[in-house]
Simulated scan of single mutants.
Amino acid sequence: MPMNEQPPWGKKKKPAGPEDFLAILIQKIRDAFSGQGEGPAPRNDQGSPSSEEPPNLFAGAGKILAIVVAALILQGAFTCFYTIKPGEVGVILRFGKYTRTTQPGLHFKIPFVEDLAKVDVEKVRKEEFGFRSRNASASTAFDRKGYDFDRKGYDMESLMLTGDKDVIEVAWIVQYKVSDPVNFLFKVRDVAQAVRDASETVTRRIVGNMDFDYVLGNREVLAASAKRELQGQMDRLECGISVVTLQLLDINPPEQVKPAFNEVNEADQDMKRLVNEAEETYNKVIPKARGSAKQIVEEAYGYAAERTNRAAGETNRFKAIVKEYQGTEDITRQRLYLEAMQEILPKVDRVYVIDKSQQNILPLLDLTRASAKEQQPVAK
């Protein structure tokens, strides 16, 4: 037999599991109350236990009490110190009443008098409407690839009615953080449900006040307005949260009306294209026509001003001549005659001089004019 092995009669039977250990502990407690834990009972001459002295019940109770007190002391020693991790805060309650808030680090609390509740104030919590995330570890609401947009089972969350009585499906997400741990723990029983109810109320009211086309094209404006109103409601309820993001992720008409909706969109795009083409033609033709009309009007104004000024000048000239003529008739008549001849004679090819003493007409030989004609080249 090896040296490290004990014979079967020398081995101690160990408990096989927690159930056996619990059964042994209960048996020991029973033995302590019955006085069997003080050693073997005295026996009489026949070898049977003597029953003259009653078992010492107080001795067993004292042992149990000492064990319980020791366990309570050890538990208090272990629970009086606690650690708050980074990103968390500790809320201390003394007999159920809020006492203080502790920051990350090692702290002390009175055991059995003060209770601790830890709140993660850096964690971004989220609530999804109209869909559920396929991957629970999705890091951001803007990564649409990490989401499952299968709407089966969530139609009642996403279906809404717009201001022009059209049905639309809106999927959105709300992200928030804890800003006041005390209000977060004690003011509202279920903060997540309060966020869901308030967000649905705000979003449905905003979408219900807008037209279908406005909702499709202005999701950022609607999301910002919904975020402000949701934060206001959370502040009035004293939920102790701060809304980080309210994002409208998907806005579409219901599946049953998508073909008709696409046809309407195509017709609307064709209408806009034709309108743009008409406006382009209008912008080309109308300004040109307006410019031509303005040019004609300005030319007419200029012509009228020219004729008017010329007529006024001629009138003033005639009046001046009349005035001079009335003073010196002979000189004025002679000057007028000379000016008329100066203007007419250069245009006359032949000039005849008539003398009263002569009976025949004497032609005036203009050598200068004749020589000028001779110098002109003859066309071949």
Rank of each mutant, 00 (worst) to 15 (best):
222 L>Q: 02
240 G>L: 14
234 M>A: 07
230 L>Q: 03
231 Q>T: 01
226 A>H: 02
227 K>Y: 06
241 I>M: 05
247 Q>A: 10
258 K>H: 04
215 V>M: 02
243 V>L: 03
223 A>M: 12
245 T>Y: 05
224 A>G: 09
219 R>K: 12
224 A>I: 15
254 P>L: 06
231 Q>L: 03
216 L>F: 06
252 N>M: 13
231 Q>E: 03
238 E>H: 08
218 N>Q: 05
242 S>G: 07
246 L>T: 01
228 R>I: 10
245 T>D: 09
215 V>Q: 00
249 L>W: 05
255 E>L: 12
244 V>H: 03
255 E>V: 03
233 Q>G: 14
252 N>I: 12
247 Q>R: 11
234 M>G: 07
252 N>F: 14
217 G>W: 02
243 V>W: 00
215 V>L: 03
213 D>H: 04
221 V>E: 15
254 P>F: 07
252 N>T: 13
225 S>Q: 12
220 E>I: 14
214 Y>E: 00
236 R>Q: 15
220 E>D: 14
254 P>T: 08
254 P>G: 13
251 I>H: 00
223 A>R: 00
221 V>L: 10
243 V>R: 01
237 L>Y: 05
231 Q>Y: 05
220 E>A: 15
256 Q>I: 13
226 A>C: 13
225 S>K: 11
223 A>S: 06
233 Q>C: 14
223 A>T: 02
239 C>T: 07
244 V>S: 15
220 E>R: 14
246 L>I: 13
235 D>I: 10
221 V>W: 03
244 V>I: 04
249 L>E: 09
257 V>N: 03
254 P>E: 06
239 C>A: 09
215 V>H: 01
235 D>Q: 15
254 P>K: 06
221 V>P: 03
230 L>A: 02
252 N>Y: 09
224 A>P: 10
256 Q>D: 11
223 A>Y: 01
236 R>C: 07
241 I>C: 04
226 A>D: 05
241 I>V: 08
241 I>A: 14
258 K>L: 12
232 G>K: 11
241 I>L: 14
226 A>K: 02
224 A>D: 12
225 S>W: 11
246 L>P: 06
254 P>N: 06
248 L>E: 01
231 Q>G: 00
221 V>I: 11
229 E>K: 09
247 Q>M: 13
251 I>M: 12
256 Q>A: 11
218 N>H: 04
213 D>W: 15
225 S>L: 05
251 I>C: 06
256 Q>V: 07
239 C>M: 11
240 G>S: 12
222 L>Y: 05
244 V>T: 07
246 L>V: 02
242 S>N: 15
242 S>C: 13
214 Y>G: 00
215 V>F: 00
241 I>N: 10
228 R>F: 04
250 D>E: 14
238 E>I: 04
217 G>S: 08
215 V>R: 02
248 L>D: 00
244 V>Y: 05
216 L>Q: 05
220 E>L: 13
251 I>G: 01
215 V>Y: 02
242 S>V: 13
239 C>S: 12
233 Q>R: 12
224 A>T: 14
221 V>S: 09
254 P>I: 05
234 M>D: 09
